[in-house]
Design a protein around this nucleic acid. Sequence first.
DNA 1: TTGAAAGCGCTAACAC
DNA 2: GTGTTAGCGCTTTCAA
Lengths: 352, 352
Amino acid sequence: MSAPNRNSNKGRLFVYPNEKRMVTLRSIADRCGVDVSTVSKVIHGREIRVGEETRAKILAAAKELNYRPNALARSLRLRRSGAIVMAMRDTSGFVYPEIIDGAQDAAERHGTCLFLLKYSSGEKAGPSLISLVQEGRIDGILWDNMPYKSFSQELIDAQVPFICLNGYADVKGQCITLDDREGFERQANYLADLGHKRIGFIGVEPQSEISILCREAFLSTLKARGIDVPAKHIWHCHFEGDDAIRIVDSIDGADRPTAIASASLMAAKRLCDSLIRKGIRVPEDISIIGYHDGPDAQWNSPPLTTVKMPSRSQGALAVECLLEMVAGGKFHKREVADSSEIIERESCLRYP
Amino acid sequence: MSAPNRNSNKGRLFVYPNEKRMVTLRSIADRCGVDVSTVSKVIHGREIRVGEETRAKILAAAKELNYRPNALARSLRLRRSGAIVMAMRDTSGFVYPEIIDGAQDAAERHGTCLFLLKYSSGEKAGPSLISLVQEGRIDGILWDNMPYKSFSQELIDAQVPFICLNGYADVKGQCITLDDREGFERQANYLADLGHKRIGFIGVEPQSEISILCREAFLSTLKARGIDVPAKHIWHCHFEGDDAIRIVDSIDGADRPTAIASASLMAAKRLCDSLIRKGIRVPEDISIIGYHDGPDAQWNSPPLTTVKMPSRSQGALAVECLLEMVAGGKFHKREVADSSEIIERESCLRYP
DNA sequence: TTGAAAGCGCTAACAC
DNA sequence: GTGTTAGCGCTTTCAA
């Protein structure tokens, strides 16, 4: 009755390394007296053409034996690994954790495995990531940022499905980004709504494309509401160095701003620090609002009011777009549906 | 002359999804007029028994065709994926980035791929991670922490090779940890060497095993040098909440400490904040030293003096031990060779 | 020194 | 409804 057991080691050519007996489709097939293909259909196939009784028997056996399909064999056959990678240069000042959460969720929904990968900033980072795809380990890559300019062209040449989470680098449009314009408009409107008239702004880099866009969104929103930000109240703050201290030193005039918006959370925190050390109170003397929300914001003293961006949705959308490309589709640009919101904490006060 | 091309699609049963022509061993074999097995030997085998001429020809073809071995096929055959995972619960207040760097290096040296994986804290985190191994995607797991108590037993039962980076949870000894005792002794000695006599200590959790060990190492080192820390100068600070503020409120007596050591970087930073807000200067009035070093430490104002632990070596060693287990060996406990060091920045001053 | 053969575990087209 | 068959790309034994 039962099928011949081909597992039976009859003169096997050689002994496998790491010999631990696995539960395979064949184990189940043998136990149920059916063919592996039938088992395969039941376990994974969407085909319904299997008898109810057989199906039940197979499912029971699978459960009983604690069957785990071998992803490697499956992937080899299907020519798809079912795994994607989110590559990032830095794991401390991280990609906003919410992006990862969103991406994770989406991947899970699609039965895909999402790994994170830290790449070194050297020259070999790119090629070695591309190899991962070429070796079949990974189906596609999500980038927080390209390791170097013009790398996106290399990816395209190598036919590697990828999506960038930052559209301001040279990524040939394959990016899913946040609507920073909307975010900075909201930031500006928030301060204006609170009644502030003398407002300052801290950008990240003076010259970068993204930085300019954000600054302009902020300034033009204020302008439309009749508020001009003088050049001397527009600063830039790097993550390292003591820019924050210099900024504070420079604002101690009679016409100092009553509120300062920062384009980064880090800069907002450092500004807070420096202000307080100088004896200027936050928010009583100067209100501060950050951009992007994170655990750091609420641990700050005072807890920071920020513009929270829909990073979670961004991560999810990026994964979905990537998987479409993996499935053979072209990249199809879509906008993150959700919008920003203000998270009110304690660093902003109504003025006057 | 040339071998028959079995790639030639003669009546192929079905068309593969995502049909892109790959360069396989067969491509090379065909081009060189040899058998795949010969090519395999040249490309990966350690066997030298291949003619010099043939070898050269094959290598040239491989290079020319930009051959990438299919990791999936290889893994399937070898029953080893060549990838490991570092699983972590949180990606923002990260495992010390250096652990990852060290692990990455070691993995690379061993031709293994290291992925990071964020697991959710729910019940299903464990099983789904175990599945990754059972499905063959991953050979072993590095944990920053167990998702829940008694999980290590589940891993052992499932025969999953794993190593924990934190030995204070319930991990049945399969851990590669830092020598925190040595670290806290160094911290204590540093403050004593600076001449401080009234010293405070901030732990993380009052009751946890690790917390107690660290505190005792610190206190007994000071005691051996004739310095007693009164109970009222021993505090605990959580990452959330306003413990730091309460601490500051409680130390404003005439006998307040001249130096405070913290068992975490975060607590040190928050303490700094609170002290400064209260008008107590760091380091002029009170010196502060943190534990563990990270980018945050140098961005603090003032930049924090800390005890830097050999996290990099820890990561590397953990990977090496894990790979031994993957190769079938038993876990063999080894100590991280390097020791801690003091990173002097600006938050500590000689006393008086 | 090289090639033939078997098979890792799985899937899908096709025949029965 | 179920089994047969071929094959994903690779490695290793054994025979030539």
